[in-house]
Amino acid sequence: MAHKNSLNTMGYEQRKSALGVRMTTLYSVVYIGFVGVSVFRPQWMGVRAIFGLNLAIAYGLGLILFAIILAVIYNYLCKVPVEHSGKQQDADGQAFPSRGDNP
């Protein structure tokens, strides 16, 4: 059982790590887009975008809010147990109580 658990832990960790890399990549693309527009098309930044805000403010505030939203989504996805590992879940829905990680 312990063996099976550790295998699942491995799968969970890998999945989480892959998820983290994908989300970082997604955010990087949006961030690079921001830097790119600032550098190569600065005049676009003055154009009205939404709610009467120009693109610079809308994009900038958007980047901050996007980070917060991504963080919440990531946390939610990390709580969801990995496929086929429903049985290892404990009562309160925490897939991996990780006390064992303590040094």
């Binding site: 961030y31 610079a56 900038g60």
Partner: peptide, 26 residues
């Protein structure tokens, strides 16, 4: 606006901290 660029960059860095570094470091 240029001052706000620091705000954007300072926060964006946390994405790397959360998704890549936090748990493996721990």
């Amino acid at each position: 606006y240029d001052g706000f660029l620091y705000s954007i960059g300072f926060l964006a860095g946390w994405i790397v901290a959360l998704f890549i570094i936090a748990e493996p470091m721990k």
